[in-house]
Every structure is written in structure tokens, then in C-alpha cells.
Amino acid sequence: MEFRYLGNSGLKVSELTFGNWLTHGSQVENDTATACVRKSLDVGISTFDTADVYANTQAEVVLGEALAGERRESVEIFTKVYGPTGPKGHNDTGLSRKHITESINGSLKRLQTDYVDLYQAHRYDVETPLEETMETFADLVRQGKVLYIGVSEWNAEQLREAHALARELKIQLVSNQPEYSLLWRVIEEEVVPASKELGISQIVWSPVAQGVLTGKYQKGAALPEGSRATDQKGGASMIERWMRDDVLDAVAQLKPVADELGLTQAQLSLAWVLSNENVASAIIGASRPEQVESNAKASGVKLEADVLAKIESIFEGLAETDPRKTQMPAGREA
């Protein structure tokens, strides 16, 4: 496993982060989830990403239990705040001082830790002054509950505004967590250039496009039993946009490229994401420890220019590139 610096900070993270968005506390049993975390540690993954809204706080509980007893200084624990948990009352969402303060206290208890390495604003809050949000984050840093600040799915303008406030408050805004894959490249035109300028890294989610880029789904074939495309708890709706014949045809063309390099299609897709120098880490999920072990082999893979060009030609015209597609809530849910 190789490591990269997170933004302009001195914090190193593993090139692959283990995330438990659609699995822990919902799709897989706790013992399997724990086995995936332990396998991550075995293969050198030290960075773990979760959020209080995942499985309505249960994903944090599972991760905290799985890491219990591990040397705290040897791992990096990331979580997020924004979405509603619990009864979803009128102050149970957003980035207000009240919600952030209450949320971090709950997350620390569930994760069984005194601090998180990175606390991320899960979305931009259009209804709370950014100054209030950043001042609250600064207070958490000074209290020792949070070491670094990050965001998720913020556009270039929002990153610039937040970074300027962070500088004034003398705290470090080091990361953004956007969706990014061969099929979803909306950050490349605006977010990545702004981030490079500001010293912000990307920690990307869905680098294998909900599993589509692994090649497990084939045109005209039945959906694999137990796959995300068959999961009616949320997985199927997330993957639906990629289950098109033109996309599946392109994915099939990845196989000979991967075979020639001695890689799986998932490993090749992860290596492609990591070829973007602004990406510090790619988040992988897993429902089996074997998936973690296999995906970890993507770390350190260097793709030559001719391979990158071949991959680009395969997906030409299929990838979403419109920077306006960066996820942005119209308003709070509560």
C-alpha cells in the first residue's frame, strides 16, 4: 500500500480508503463488516471513511467496534456531518453550530475515539452562513475533537470561499470528497484546478461506478445474485443510471486492456482514478474481505500514457463531464 499527502497538510493517507456507505449496518452482517475492516488493515489500508447518516448512525457504530483495540495513531478515521439522523427534527440537519456540535459528539461516541482525523461537511448548506459553519469547525479543531477539515461535493466557488475563511481562522481545509470515475468526471474542469491552487486533495467515492466498471454486469445477461443492482434497499437505484447498453459495451472493452496489464477491471479503474495527481485516495467498499484484498492491489499501479489514451478512447462521449452536475442540495430536508 502506498500513501499520499492530504492536500497541503502533513497528513498521509493510504491510496485506498475503506468506506462503509452502503454496507455496514445495512447490507452486510456485522461480522462480515468487521472482517472487511480487518482485511483492510492486513493489506495496509489505514484510512477509513464513514458518516453519521450511513445506516442512520449504525455504520459509525460498526466501524468503531471493528477498530476497537487498534492503535489509534496508526489509523485515520474520517466522518461527515450534514444530513439528518434520529427523529429528523427541525435542527437535526445542516451545518449550523447546533447541529455540527451535537453531531460530532455523537460520532465520537459511536466511533469510540476522542477525535476524528478528518471531519467533512457532507454537502454545502445553502441555509446556514458559511462563516457560522467554518467558525464552528475551527472551535472543534481547537477543542481537539477534529484534526483537519474537509467537505464533500462542493463546487469550485464554494471551495474558494471556505478556504479563504479557513485561512482567516487558521485551520486547515484539506480535502473534498466528490464522486469520480471513468463514467463521472464532473470535477475535472473546475473543481480540480481550483483544488490544486488551494492545496486541497480529492478523496473520491464510487471510483468503480457502483461496481459497473468491474465488468460483473454484462449486456443481455441476468444480474448477478446478491449484486448491488439487485439490492432494493438503495443500491439498485444508485446503479441504474449506468445499466445502459452503450456503457456496458464500453466496460466490456476494458477487459482486454486489464488482462494485458495483469489487472482486474476493478483494479484498472482504481488505478485510472489514482492517476489523477489531485486524488489523494479512492474509497472502496466491500461486502466480502476478498474484494478488499483484490482492490488493494491497485495501489502503486502506474498506467503508461498509451494505456491512458486507450482507456480515454473507449469511454469517449460516455462520461458525464458537466461541472454543474456537482451534487448540490436545493435546501435542507428537515
Rank of each mutant, 00 (worst) to 15 (best):
G150S: 05
N155H: 13
R241L: 13
L165D: 02
G234T: 11
E161F: 13
N155L: 07
Q218D: 05
K216F: 04
G262Q: 05
L198G: 06
E131L: 14
G234S: 12
L254N: 02
N176V: 01
Q172S: 13
V174L: 11
G226I: 04
R160L: 07
L147I: 08
G220W: 06
D231P: 09
S175C: 09
G211N: 04
A121Q: 11
Q232H: 12
Q232T: 13
V212G: 01
K145S: 05
H163F: 14
V251L: 07
E179F: 02
T128M: 08
Q143A: 15
K255C: 08
G150V: 06
F137R: 04
D125A: 10
D139T: 15
S201Q: 06
E132H: 14
T136H: 08
A229E: 03
L169P: 01
P224I: 11
R244H: 14
V151R: 00
E240G: 11
L183Y: 01
A121D: 02
L169C: 03
A252V: 02
V141L: 04
V141S: 03
R123A: 15
L147T: 10
A194G: 01
L165Q: 08
K219E: 07
Y217F: 12
M238T: 08
V141T: 03
L140F: 09
A209F: 03
P178T: 05
D231Y: 15
H163M: 07
F137G: 02
K196M: 09
A222E: 11
G234K: 11
T264D: 09
P224K: 12
V141Y: 03
S201R: 04
E132Q: 13
Y119T: 07
L183D: 00
A162N: 03
L182P: 03
A209S: 13
P193G: 06
G215H: 12
Y148M: 07
S237Q: 14
Q177K: 03
E190Q: 14
Q218G: 09
L173S: 01
V247T: 07
Q143S: 12
Q177H: 10
S227I: 09
A156L: 04
W205F: 14
E179Y: 00
S195I: 06
Q232N: 10
T264G: 09
S227H: 09
G144Q: 10
L213I: 06
V208M: 05
E127P: 08
Q232L: 14
S181T: 02
G262R: 12
G220F: 11
V146A: 10
E240H: 15
L173A: 00
D246E: 15
P193Y: 06
Q120P: 06
E161L: 15
A138T: 09
P178I: 05
Q158G: 09
R185C: 01
K216Q: 12
R241G: 08
A258E: 06
D125L: 10
K233D: 12
M243P: 10
L261I: 02
L147P: 01
M134E: 01
E179Q: 13
D139M: 15
E135Q: 14
G199V: 02
E157K: 13
G211C: 08
A166V: 01
R167S: 09
R244T: 15
V251K: 01
Q120L: 13
A166H: 03
T214V: 11
V141H: 00
R185L: 00
Q253T: 07
L198R: 01
G150F: 02
L169E: 01
V151G: 00
V212F: 04
P178S: 14
R185I: 00
K196N: 11
K145H: 12
A236C: 09
L173E: 00
T136I: 05
